[in-house]
Write a protein that binds this DNA or RNA. Structure first.
Lengths: 136, 136
DNA sequence: CTTGCTCCTGTAGTGGCTACAGGAAGTAAA
DNA sequence: TTTACTTCCTGTAGCCACTACAGGAGCAAG
């Protein structure tokens, strides 16, 4: 059995975050010592690590909870996992695409900025009266 | 003079968000009608639009406030704007890079998932005991 | 005069943490 | 044993940039 500090070290999850996950029901409540301290099993730590890896992949907590209910199940679960992963891939692609567009917009705005310009062309463009609905 | 609904329509900023910007001091307080309703000038609406465009480019509020103080100034401002924009470009590039890495990781994890697999290879991999610090 | 729209203030919720304050318990050296 | 240091506890508030809602008031058209 491991105290929360060790569990944090072994799982890579911040201590405060572990307590947050417990509060929110994202991981099970661990046993407690006589003095009320949390005691984690290897299995509990594995679950924390699982949550961390999913978070690192960008999955929201709600999806991770679905993953956790699916781990108990049989063959159907793999199909569902794949489908959730593919949805997430699409979201990632969308984010990348939007960032690339944004990158281009920002670059073209700042390209004309040069030391000593009377007015900043970038601020001028952002201040001007044109359309405003089409960037985000 | 325009009521808040019209100002929202013309600037593209949500009504609640306009009030939020005012509360937080991101835009100036507008005049009020006799009955206490906000009345926006064209200039006030232009400022809302400016904030929106900056937000759409991903600039945080704090930077937008810097932009606003810089618009009054002379030639030095353009250099500073360019520098802030370039910092932001670097941040965008970092985000894109991380998303691409993440995309690859997720794709390789889900590739082995197939209908009817006994255990889901993706969940198995995420559950396993390997290292956990190196993904995010 | 009623209906329906817009507007007002104030507060709380979102996601996913993170950072305290103020205390108790454990550990190790002097 | 005392002291000092570290870890742990609960509870609450803060972060960012909004968004939503309750409960009410004003205003314009039919």
């Amino acid at each position: 059995m491991f105290a929360i500090g060790k569990a944090s070290e072994l799982s890579g999850v911040n201590i405060e975050t572990i307590r947050y996950y417990e509060r929110e029901g994202i991981v099970a409540k661990p046993d407690r010592s006589a003095a009320g301290r949390r005691l984690y099993t290897r299995d509990g730590i594995a679950k924390l690590r699982f949550v961390k890896r999913c978070r690192d992949l960008g999955f929201p907590i709600a999806i991770i909870q679905v993953f956790q209910t699916l781990t108990g199940e049989q063959s159907r679960s793999c199909t569902e996992v794949k489908s959730l992963a593919e949805d997430h891939l699409i979201e990632i692609d969308t984010k990348i695409k939007n960032l690339v567009i944004l990158r281009r917009a920002l670059q073209s705005l700042s390209r004309n900025c040069d030391e000593g310009a009377a007015n900043c062309p970038m601020l001028d463009a952002l201040m001007s009266d044109g359309p405003s609905e089409d960037m985000g």
